[in-house]
Amino acid sequence: MINFTDVGKQYPNGTKALEDINLTIEQGEFVGIIGLSGAGKSTLLRCINRMHDITEGTLIVDDVDVAKLKGKQIRHFRRGIGMIFQSFNLVTRISVLNNVLVSFVPELSFWRKITGVYTKEQKVKALDALDKVGILDKAFVRVDQLSGGQQQRVALARTLAQNPDVILADEPIASLDPVTSRQVMDDFKRINRDMDISVLLNIHHVEVALEFADRIIGIRKGKIVFDGKSKDVNQDTLDEIYGGKVEEFGTDAEEESLHV
């Protein structure tokens, strides 16, 4: 469970990225976070795994007070939370399998960490993770040989190998074509359903968000302006989230993503 109470985040230069965030996300929810670029969607996600620090309020993730964690505790805490990025953030010069194996690095002994030699058991786990996203046959291919959709699946496998309770996805389909986007979203949905992993994703494609997410959170200028079921989202709520910029359902929001 993720619980925000009066959370605020101010950057050192004075910009308020988040204000008065009150939010409870139960284990196993599939949440789509929508809003304009710069509204604070990425900041919200990155506070959850402490890639960003909050400056006000309390944030509890699985009974852990995130703001109170220090050094080693933060790293241990992050082990339980997966993260997916718009640009995949893989190491392109090495093989798919090696990209998945990095999620075991924090568990390795000192010498294994330096040399990068993994145990057989870890290799099997990594291959299992690749199998779950359907790209087992690419295990020994270099990442730069893969298409965007395949790369995002490798990133997903890397996250699954961590065995997380929560997956945070920051614009996971923004650099993919519509068909591949759909496949990747299907992967998210399946993982969410079959493995009871909570999925929180930032997304610009409103119609995709409404189709896949059970719950939608709309953010505008660092504040939550909508929080409810996907089916309750209508034109008025979208107008409020996007500041009246969405004239036709979805189409403009899609164009918005092109400006990212």
Binding site: N49, M51, R75, H76, F77, R78, R79, I81, G82, M83, F85, S87, F88, N89, L90, V91, R93, I94, V102, S103, V105, P106, K113, I114, G116, A155, R158, Q162
Partner: peptide, 27 residues
């Protein structure tokens, strides 16, 4: 980007260097 990913997995900055940046600069 990959450095950020390594940090989100729970690596220290130097571990993240070893696994994200080192393979990039090795050649």
């Amino acid at each position: 980007g990959s450095f950020e990913a390594m940090e989100s997995i729970g690596m220290t900055r130097f571990q993240a260097f070893r696994y994200a940046i080192f393979p990039q600069v090795l050649p």
